[in-house]
């Protein structure tokens, strides 16, 4: 699984972090700054929930 964050679309709701604390990294203002990359198999479910929770649909998952 690979995740990509559209940092232009992120407006800092921070729900990705609430749902996937081990996957996403936010800056000090609460905006998603997670670099694009592969997700460890044990974190895939978290990553899916984090992406689905984003009100801006800013997180893309490629399975």
């Amino acid at each position: 699984m690979r995740i990509t964050v559209d940092t232009e679309a992120c407006t800092g709701h921070a729900l990705c972090l609430a749902n996937a604390p081990d996957v996403f990294v936010l800056d000090d203002l609460g905006y998603n700054v997670t670099p694009a990359g592969e997700v460890a198999p044990e974190l895939e479910e978290q990553a899916r929930r984090g992406a689905l929770s984003c009100p801006e649909m800013a997180i893309t998952i490629e399975e």
Binding site: L52, S53, P55
Partner: peptide, 20 residues
């Protein structure tokens, strides 16, 4: 309910900054 991408804090640049 999940996912639950409600609009109650708004979306876009003017979304509620006090949501947390």
């Amino acid at each position: 309910r999940f996912p639950n991408r409600h609009i109650s804090f708004g979306v876009g640049i003017h979304r509620c900054p006090g949501s947390h």
